[in-house]
Design a protein around this nucleic acid. Structure first.
Lengths: 189, 189
DNA sequence: AGGTCCTAAGAACAGCTGTTCTCTAAGGAT
DNA sequence: ATCCTTAGAGAACAGCTGTTCTTAGGACCT
Protein backbone atom coordinates (compact mmCIF):
# COMPACT_ATOMS: atom_id res chain seq x y z
CA UNK A 1 0.00 0.00 0.00
CA UNK A 2 0.94 3.62 -0.45
CA UNK A 3 -0.34 7.09 0.37
CA UNK A 4 -4.02 7.63 0.79
CA UNK A 5 -5.95 10.43 -0.93
CA UNK A 6 -6.07 13.66 1.05
CA UNK A 7 -9.34 14.81 -0.40
CA UNK A 8 -12.78 13.88 0.80
CA UNK A 9 -15.22 13.30 -2.03
CA UNK A 10 -18.17 14.66 -0.07
CA UNK A 11 -16.36 17.88 0.72
CA UNK A 12 -15.36 18.23 -2.91
CA UNK A 13 -18.96 17.80 -4.04
CA UNK A 14 -20.19 20.26 -1.45
CA UNK A 15 -17.76 22.94 -2.53
CA UNK A 16 -18.60 22.24 -6.16
CA UNK A 17 -22.23 23.07 -5.46
CA UNK A 18 -21.16 26.59 -4.55
CA UNK A 19 -19.00 26.96 -7.63
CA UNK A 20 -21.69 25.81 -10.03
CA UNK A 21 -24.24 28.02 -8.29
CA UNK A 22 -22.00 31.02 -8.81
CA UNK A 23 -20.94 30.51 -12.41
CA UNK A 24 -23.19 27.89 -13.95
CA UNK A 25 -21.82 24.77 -15.58
CA UNK A 26 -20.18 26.26 -18.64
CA UNK A 27 -19.04 29.30 -16.69
CA UNK A 28 -17.26 27.24 -14.04
CA UNK A 29 -13.74 26.44 -15.19
CA UNK A 30 -11.64 23.49 -14.12
CA UNK A 31 -8.94 25.74 -12.68
CA UNK A 32 -11.37 27.12 -10.13
CA UNK A 33 -12.88 23.74 -9.41
CA UNK A 34 -9.45 22.29 -8.77
CA UNK A 35 -8.32 25.23 -6.69
CA UNK A 36 -11.40 25.62 -4.49
CA UNK A 37 -12.12 21.96 -3.90
CA UNK A 38 -8.55 21.31 -2.84
CA UNK A 39 -8.55 18.54 -5.37
CA UNK A 40 -5.91 17.77 -7.96
CA UNK A 41 -6.40 17.25 -11.64
CA UNK A 42 -5.19 13.72 -11.85
CA UNK A 43 -7.38 12.61 -8.98
CA UNK A 44 -10.33 14.45 -10.42
CA UNK A 45 -10.28 12.61 -13.71
CA UNK A 46 -9.56 9.30 -12.02
CA UNK A 47 -12.51 9.82 -9.73
CA UNK A 48 -15.07 11.42 -12.03
CA UNK A 49 -13.97 10.90 -15.61
CA UNK A 50 -15.03 14.28 -16.95
CA UNK A 51 -16.47 17.63 -15.98
CA UNK A 52 -19.87 16.61 -17.23
CA UNK A 53 -20.02 13.38 -15.24
CA UNK A 54 -18.79 15.36 -12.28
CA UNK A 55 -21.82 17.60 -12.69
CA UNK A 56 -24.16 14.64 -12.44
CA UNK A 57 -22.59 13.58 -9.19
CA UNK A 58 -22.74 17.12 -7.84
CA UNK A 59 -26.43 17.26 -8.72
CA UNK A 60 -27.06 13.98 -6.94
CA UNK A 61 -25.15 15.23 -3.92
CA UNK A 62 -27.12 18.47 -4.03
CA UNK A 63 -30.40 16.59 -3.95
CA UNK A 64 -29.29 14.30 -1.15
CA UNK A 65 -27.74 16.92 1.10
CA UNK A 66 -29.51 20.18 0.29
CA UNK A 67 -32.90 19.68 -1.29
CA UNK A 68 -33.62 16.70 0.90
CA UNK A 69 -33.59 18.97 3.93
CA UNK A 70 -36.76 20.52 2.58
CA UNK A 71 -38.34 17.51 0.89
CA UNK A 72 -38.02 15.38 4.00
CA UNK A 73 -40.72 17.58 5.51
CA UNK A 74 -43.10 16.49 2.78
CA UNK A 75 -42.16 12.88 3.35
CA UNK A 76 -43.11 13.27 7.00
CA UNK A 77 -46.60 13.81 5.67
CA UNK A 78 -48.23 15.66 8.51
CA UNK A 79 -50.61 17.54 6.24
CA UNK A 80 -50.55 21.29 5.96
CA UNK A 81 -47.90 21.62 8.64
CA UNK A 82 -45.48 19.69 6.47
CA UNK A 83 -46.17 21.91 3.48
CA UNK A 84 -45.59 25.02 5.54
CA UNK A 85 -42.40 23.57 6.97
CA UNK A 86 -41.23 22.61 3.49
CA UNK A 87 -41.59 26.14 2.16
CA UNK A 88 -39.93 27.70 5.15
CA UNK A 89 -36.96 25.41 4.78
CA UNK A 90 -36.81 25.69 1.01
CA UNK A 91 -36.80 29.47 1.11
CA UNK A 92 -33.93 29.39 3.56
CA UNK A 93 -32.01 27.10 1.22
CA UNK A 94 -32.40 29.11 -1.98
CA UNK A 95 -32.50 32.68 -0.68
CA UNK A 96 -29.72 34.71 -2.21
CA UNK A 97 -28.36 31.61 -3.94
CA UNK A 98 -30.95 29.98 -6.15
CA UNK A 99 -31.29 26.27 -6.75
CA UNK A 100 -28.56 24.32 -8.50
CA UNK A 101 -31.03 21.90 -10.03
CA UNK A 102 -33.14 24.67 -11.52
CA UNK A 103 -30.09 26.57 -12.76
CA UNK A 104 -28.75 23.48 -14.45
CA UNK A 105 -32.06 22.70 -16.08
CA UNK A 106 -32.41 26.21 -17.47
CA UNK A 107 -28.82 26.22 -18.70
CA UNK A 108 -28.50 22.72 -20.11
CA UNK A 109 -32.04 21.36 -20.29
CA UNK A 110 -32.10 21.42 -24.08
CA UNK A 111 -28.70 19.97 -24.82
CA UNK A 112 -28.40 17.47 -22.00
CA UNK A 113 -31.17 14.90 -21.83
CA UNK A 114 -29.87 13.47 -18.59
CA UNK A 115 -30.18 16.84 -16.89
CA UNK A 116 -33.70 17.18 -18.22
CA UNK A 117 -34.54 13.75 -16.89
CA UNK A 118 -33.14 14.58 -13.46
CA UNK A 119 -35.25 17.72 -13.46
CA UNK A 120 -38.39 15.83 -14.32
CA UNK A 121 -37.84 13.28 -11.60
CA UNK A 122 -37.33 16.04 -9.12
CA UNK A 123 -40.61 17.71 -10.06
CA UNK A 124 -42.40 14.37 -9.90
CA UNK A 125 -40.99 13.75 -6.45
CA UNK A 126 -42.22 17.15 -5.32
CA UNK A 127 -45.65 16.60 -6.80
CA UNK A 128 -46.05 13.23 -5.11
CA UNK A 129 -45.00 14.75 -1.81
CA UNK A 130 -47.47 17.59 -2.12
CA UNK A 131 -50.31 15.28 -3.12
CA UNK A 132 -49.68 13.10 -0.09
CA UNK A 133 -49.68 16.08 2.25
CA UNK A 134 -52.78 17.57 0.66
CA UNK A 135 -54.68 14.31 1.01
CA UNK A 136 -53.71 14.11 4.64
CA UNK A 137 -54.64 17.75 5.11
CA UNK A 138 -58.11 17.15 3.69
CA UNK A 139 -58.61 14.12 5.92
CA UNK A 140 -57.79 16.25 8.92
CA UNK A 141 -59.86 19.15 7.62
CA UNK A 142 -56.86 21.44 7.55
CA UNK A 143 -57.69 22.71 4.08
CA UNK A 144 -60.87 23.37 2.16
CA UNK A 145 -62.39 20.11 1.03
CA UNK A 146 -63.32 21.41 -2.40
CA UNK A 147 -59.82 21.92 -3.75
CA UNK A 148 -58.57 19.92 -6.70
CA UNK A 149 -55.68 18.01 -5.21
CA UNK A 150 -53.81 17.35 -8.41
CA UNK A 151 -54.11 20.90 -9.67
CA UNK A 152 -53.13 22.33 -6.32
CA UNK A 153 -50.10 20.06 -6.15
CA UNK A 154 -49.03 21.25 -9.59
CA UNK A 155 -49.55 24.78 -8.42
CA UNK A 156 -47.31 24.27 -5.43
CA UNK A 157 -44.64 22.58 -7.57
CA UNK A 158 -44.65 25.50 -9.89
CA UNK A 159 -44.37 27.82 -6.97
CA UNK A 160 -41.26 26.09 -5.72
CA UNK A 161 -39.50 26.65 -9.04
CA UNK A 162 -40.48 30.29 -8.89
CA UNK A 163 -38.67 30.67 -5.58
CA UNK A 164 -35.55 29.21 -7.12
CA UNK A 165 -35.49 32.08 -9.59
CA UNK A 166 -36.75 34.86 -7.35
CA UNK A 167 -34.31 33.71 -4.69
CA UNK A 168 -31.45 34.86 -6.88
CA UNK A 169 -32.89 38.31 -7.38
CA UNK A 170 -34.39 38.91 -3.97
CA UNK A 171 -31.96 40.48 -1.59
CA UNK A 172 -32.41 40.40 2.15
CA UNK A 173 -36.09 41.27 1.86
CA UNK A 174 -38.86 39.02 3.07
CA UNK A 175 -40.63 38.98 -0.29
CA UNK A 176 -40.52 35.22 -0.41
CA UNK A 177 -42.09 34.75 2.98
CA UNK A 178 -44.82 37.26 2.19
CA UNK A 179 -45.66 35.51 -1.04
CA UNK A 180 -45.89 32.17 0.71
CA UNK A 181 -48.43 33.47 3.16
CA UNK A 182 -50.54 34.67 0.27
CA UNK A 183 -50.17 31.25 -1.28
CA UNK A 184 -51.02 29.02 1.65
CA UNK A 185 -53.55 31.31 3.31
CA UNK A 186 -56.40 30.70 0.86
CA UNK A 187 -55.96 26.95 1.13
CA UNK A 188 -56.70 26.84 4.83
CA UNK A 189 -60.07 25.58 5.95
CA UNK B 1 -21.96 55.52 -50.86
CA UNK B 2 -21.32 51.79 -51.14
CA UNK B 3 -23.07 48.50 -50.50
CA UNK B 4 -25.78 48.27 -47.92
CA UNK B 5 -25.88 45.57 -45.27
CA UNK B 6 -27.79 42.46 -46.22
CA UNK B 7 -28.69 41.54 -42.67
CA UNK B 8 -31.58 42.89 -40.69
CA UNK B 9 -30.73 43.59 -37.05
CA UNK B 10 -34.19 42.65 -35.83
CA UNK B 11 -34.07 39.30 -37.57
CA UNK B 12 -30.62 38.66 -36.16
CA UNK B 13 -31.82 39.41 -32.64
CA UNK B 14 -34.88 37.22 -33.08
CA UNK B 15 -32.84 34.24 -34.24
CA UNK B 16 -30.37 34.84 -31.42
CA UNK B 17 -33.19 34.43 -28.91
CA UNK B 18 -33.63 30.87 -30.12
CA UNK B 19 -29.93 30.13 -29.97
CA UNK B 20 -29.50 31.42 -26.43
CA UNK B 21 -32.64 29.58 -25.34
CA UNK B 22 -31.19 26.34 -26.64
CA UNK B 23 -27.66 26.55 -25.34
CA UNK B 24 -27.50 29.29 -22.76
CA UNK B 25 -25.05 32.18 -23.05
CA UNK B 26 -21.80 30.37 -22.44
CA UNK B 27 -22.98 27.34 -24.36
CA UNK B 28 -23.82 29.33 -27.47
CA UNK B 29 -20.71 29.73 -29.62
CA UNK B 30 -20.00 32.48 -32.09
CA UNK B 31 -19.75 30.04 -34.99
CA UNK B 32 -23.38 29.04 -34.55
CA UNK B 33 -24.51 32.59 -33.94
CA UNK B 34 -22.82 33.72 -37.13
CA UNK B 35 -24.11 30.79 -39.14
CA UNK B 36 -27.73 30.84 -38.00
CA UNK B 37 -28.25 34.58 -37.98
CA UNK B 38 -26.84 34.90 -41.49
CA UNK B 39 -24.54 37.52 -40.08
CA UNK B 40 -20.84 37.92 -40.67
CA UNK B 41 -18.17 38.29 -38.07
CA UNK B 42 -16.95 41.67 -39.11
CA UNK B 43 -20.44 43.14 -39.15
CA UNK B 44 -21.23 41.52 -35.83
CA UNK B 45 -18.40 43.20 -33.96
CA UNK B 46 -18.97 46.50 -35.74
CA UNK B 47 -22.63 46.39 -34.75
CA UNK B 48 -22.50 44.94 -31.25
CA UNK B 49 -18.94 45.17 -29.97
CA UNK B 50 -18.85 41.84 -28.16
CA UNK B 51 -20.82 38.71 -27.44
CA UNK B 52 -21.75 40.02 -24.02
CA UNK B 53 -23.09 43.34 -25.28
CA UNK B 54 -24.91 41.40 -27.93
CA UNK B 55 -26.62 39.46 -25.16
CA UNK B 56 -27.90 42.66 -23.59
CA UNK B 57 -29.44 43.72 -26.88
CA UNK B 58 -30.97 40.29 -27.38
CA UNK B 59 -32.47 40.49 -23.90
CA UNK B 60 -33.94 43.90 -24.64
CA UNK B 61 -35.32 42.61 -27.90
CA UNK B 62 -36.75 39.61 -26.10
CA UNK B 63 -38.57 41.82 -23.63
CA UNK B 64 -39.91 44.10 -26.32
CA UNK B 65 -41.04 41.47 -28.78
CA UNK B 66 -41.80 38.36 -26.71
CA UNK B 67 -42.50 39.15 -23.07
CA UNK B 68 -44.35 42.31 -23.97
CA UNK B 69 -47.00 40.20 -25.69
CA UNK B 70 -47.95 38.94 -22.25
CA UNK B 71 -47.22 42.01 -20.15
CA UNK B 72 -49.30 44.24 -22.38
CA UNK B 73 -52.34 42.44 -21.00
CA UNK B 74 -51.45 43.64 -17.53
CA UNK B 75 -50.97 47.15 -18.83
CA UNK B 76 -54.47 47.05 -20.23
CA UNK B 77 -55.56 46.83 -16.62
CA UNK B 78 -58.99 45.32 -16.90
CA UNK B 79 -58.80 43.58 -13.54
CA UNK B 80 -58.92 39.83 -13.21
CA UNK B 81 -59.53 39.35 -16.92
CA UNK B 82 -56.14 40.90 -17.66
CA UNK B 83 -54.40 38.63 -15.20
CA UNK B 84 -56.02 35.57 -16.72
CA UNK B 85 -55.13 36.74 -20.22
CA UNK B 86 -51.58 37.39 -19.12
CA UNK B 87 -51.08 33.86 -17.84
CA UNK B 88 -52.66 32.29 -20.87
CA UNK B 89 -50.36 34.22 -23.16
CA UNK B 90 -47.29 33.73 -21.01
CA UNK B 91 -47.76 29.98 -20.87
CA UNK B 92 -48.02 29.88 -24.64
CA UNK B 93 -44.77 31.82 -24.88
CA UNK B 94 -42.66 29.69 -22.55
CA UNK B 95 -44.14 26.23 -23.06
CA UNK B 96 -41.46 23.85 -24.26
CA UNK B 97 -38.94 26.68 -24.46
CA UNK B 98 -38.55 28.46 -21.17
CA UNK B 99 -37.88 32.16 -20.73
CA UNK B 100 -34.66 33.71 -21.96
CA UNK B 101 -34.66 36.29 -19.20
CA UNK B 102 -35.02 33.68 -16.48
CA UNK B 103 -32.42 31.41 -18.07
CA UNK B 104 -29.95 34.26 -18.28
CA UNK B 105 -30.54 35.29 -14.69
CA UNK B 106 -30.00 31.78 -13.40
CA UNK B 107 -26.89 31.31 -15.51
CA UNK B 108 -25.21 34.68 -15.11
CA UNK B 109 -27.02 36.38 -12.23
CA UNK B 110 -24.04 36.15 -9.91
CA UNK B 111 -21.29 37.20 -12.24
CA UNK B 112 -23.09 39.79 -14.32
CA UNK B 113 -24.60 42.63 -12.35
CA UNK B 114 -26.25 44.10 -15.41
CA UNK B 115 -28.16 40.87 -16.02
CA UNK B 116 -29.22 40.84 -12.39
CA UNK B 117 -30.41 44.40 -12.70
CA UNK B 118 -32.40 43.61 -15.84
CA UNK B 119 -33.98 40.70 -13.99
CA UNK B 120 -34.96 42.87 -11.07
CA UNK B 121 -36.53 45.50 -13.28
CA UNK B 122 -38.49 42.83 -15.02
CA UNK B 123 -39.87 41.48 -11.76
CA UNK B 124 -40.69 44.99 -10.60
CA UNK B 125 -42.54 45.64 -13.82
CA UNK B 126 -44.54 42.46 -13.34
CA UNK B 127 -45.34 43.31 -9.74
CA UNK B 128 -46.57 46.77 -10.62
CA UNK B 129 -48.73 45.32 -13.36
CA UNK B 130 -50.26 42.76 -11.03
CA UNK B 131 -50.89 45.32 -8.30
CA UNK B 132 -52.70 47.56 -10.74
CA UNK B 133 -54.88 44.73 -11.98
CA UNK B 134 -55.62 43.49 -8.48
CA UNK B 135 -56.68 46.96 -7.34
CA UNK B 136 -58.97 47.24 -10.29
CA UNK B 137 -60.30 43.74 -9.63
CA UNK B 138 -61.16 44.65 -6.05
CA UNK B 139 -62.92 47.83 -7.15
CA UNK B 140 -65.05 45.77 -9.48
CA UNK B 141 -65.54 43.04 -6.89
CA UNK B 142 -63.95 40.43 -9.12
CA UNK B 143 -61.78 39.08 -6.31
CA UNK B 144 -62.20 38.66 -2.60
CA UNK B 145 -61.87 42.00 -0.87
CA UNK B 146 -59.82 40.60 1.99
CA UNK B 147 -56.70 39.69 0.03
CA UNK B 148 -53.41 41.40 0.71
CA UNK B 149 -52.69 43.05 -2.61
CA UNK B 150 -48.94 43.34 -2.21
CA UNK B 151 -48.49 39.79 -1.02
CA UNK B 152 -50.75 38.44 -3.74
CA UNK B 153 -48.85 40.37 -6.40
CA UNK B 154 -45.60 38.89 -5.12
CA UNK B 155 -47.21 35.50 -5.20
CA UNK B 156 -48.21 35.93 -8.82
CA UNK B 157 -44.75 37.21 -9.75
CA UNK B 158 -43.23 34.19 -8.21
CA UNK B 159 -45.63 32.01 -10.06
CA UNK B 160 -44.60 33.47 -13.39
CA UNK B 161 -40.99 32.55 -12.77
CA UNK B 162 -42.07 29.04 -11.88
CA UNK B 163 -43.68 28.65 -15.28
CA UNK B 164 -40.46 29.67 -16.94
CA UNK B 165 -38.74 26.69 -15.35
CA UNK B 166 -41.57 24.18 -15.53
CA UNK B 167 -42.14 25.20 -19.14
CA UNK B 168 -38.81 23.65 -20.05
CA UNK B 169 -39.62 20.36 -18.40
CA UNK B 170 -43.31 20.09 -19.22
CA UNK B 171 -43.96 18.38 -22.50
CA UNK B 172 -47.19 18.71 -24.39
CA UNK B 173 -49.23 18.24 -21.23
CA UNK B 174 -51.59 20.84 -19.86
CA UNK B 175 -49.93 20.88 -16.44
CA UNK B 176 -49.38 24.59 -16.67
CA UNK B 177 -52.97 25.41 -17.47
CA UNK B 178 -54.21 23.18 -14.66
CA UNK B 179 -51.94 24.83 -12.16
CA UNK B 180 -53.11 28.27 -13.21
CA UNK B 181 -56.72 27.37 -12.58
CA UNK B 182 -55.80 26.25 -9.10
CA UNK B 183 -53.96 29.53 -8.65
CA UNK B 184 -56.57 31.99 -9.84
CA UNK B 185 -59.64 30.09 -8.69
CA UNK B 186 -59.30 30.86 -4.97
CA UNK B 187 -58.85 34.55 -5.68
CA UNK B 188 -62.22 34.91 -7.33
CA UNK B 189 -65.00 36.58 -5.38
C1' DA C 1 14.90 1.70 7.50
C1' DG C 2 14.01 0.83 2.97
C1' DG C 3 11.37 -0.19 -0.81
C1' DT C 4 7.45 0.59 -3.36
C1' DC C 5 3.15 2.11 -4.72
C1' DC C 6 0.37 5.87 -5.37
C1' DT C 7 -0.66 10.73 -4.51
C1' DA C 8 -0.09 15.91 -5.26
C1' DA C 9 1.40 19.51 -8.06
C1' DG C 10 1.53 21.48 -12.13
C1' DA C 11 3.59 21.43 -16.83
C1' DA C 12 2.06 20.20 -21.37
C1' DC C 13 -1.22 19.59 -25.00
C1' DA C 14 -4.69 19.74 -28.43
C1' DG C 15 -8.77 21.74 -29.60
C1' DC C 16 -11.88 25.44 -29.09
C1' DT C 17 -13.54 30.42 -28.35
C1' DG C 18 -14.07 35.15 -28.91
C1' DT C 19 -12.06 38.64 -31.57
C1' DT C 20 -9.39 40.87 -35.26
C1' DC C 21 -7.63 41.25 -39.83
C1' DT C 22 -7.23 40.62 -44.82
C1' DC C 23 -8.87 40.49 -49.20
C1' DT C 24 -12.28 40.33 -52.62
C1' DA C 25 -16.15 42.10 -54.92
C1' DA C 26 -20.89 44.11 -54.66
C1' DG C 27 -23.45 48.10 -55.69
C1' DG C 28 -24.66 52.97 -55.17
C1' DA C 29 -23.11 57.74 -56.80
C1' DT C 30 -21.41 60.32 -60.32
C1' DA D 1 -19.22 52.73 -67.26
C1' DT D 2 -16.25 53.80 -63.60
C1' DC D 3 -14.90 54.77 -59.09
C1' DC D 4 -14.92 54.14 -54.44
C1' DT D 5 -16.87 52.94 -50.24
C1' DT D 6 -17.95 49.22 -47.47
C1' DA D 7 -20.12 44.49 -46.84
C1' DG D 8 -19.07 39.49 -46.89
C1' DA D 9 -16.40 35.36 -46.28
C1' DG D 10 -13.29 33.28 -43.79
C1' DA D 11 -8.28 33.03 -42.51
C1' DA D 12 -5.56 34.20 -38.57
C1' DC D 13 -4.65 34.92 -33.78
C1' DA D 14 -4.12 34.95 -28.92
C1' DG D 15 -5.87 33.26 -24.90
C1' DC D 16 -8.48 29.86 -22.63
C1' DT D 17 -10.53 25.09 -21.54
C1' DG D 18 -10.86 20.39 -20.59
C1' DT D 19 -7.83 16.62 -20.39
C1' DT D 20 -3.46 13.99 -20.14
C1' DC D 21 1.25 13.32 -18.77
C1' DT D 22 5.45 13.86 -16.10
C1' DT D 23 7.85 14.17 -12.03
C1' DA D 24 8.94 14.34 -7.36
C1' DG D 25 7.72 13.17 -2.79
C1' DG D 26 4.78 10.87 1.03
C1' DA D 27 3.03 7.14 3.62
C1' DC D 28 2.15 2.42 4.37
C1' DC D 29 4.09 -2.44 4.78
C1' DT D 30 7.57 -5.48 5.81
Amino acid sequence: MARRPQYNVDEVLTEAIQIFLEHGFNGAVMDEIIARTGFNRRGFYLEFGSKQQFLYQVLEHYQKTVLHQAISHLENNKGLVSITAFFKQYIALVKGKGCLLVNTVTELGFDDKQVKSIGRHYIDQLEIGFIGCLERAIEHQQVRADINIEATALQLCNYVQGFAVTGILAGATDELELATEALLGPLAA
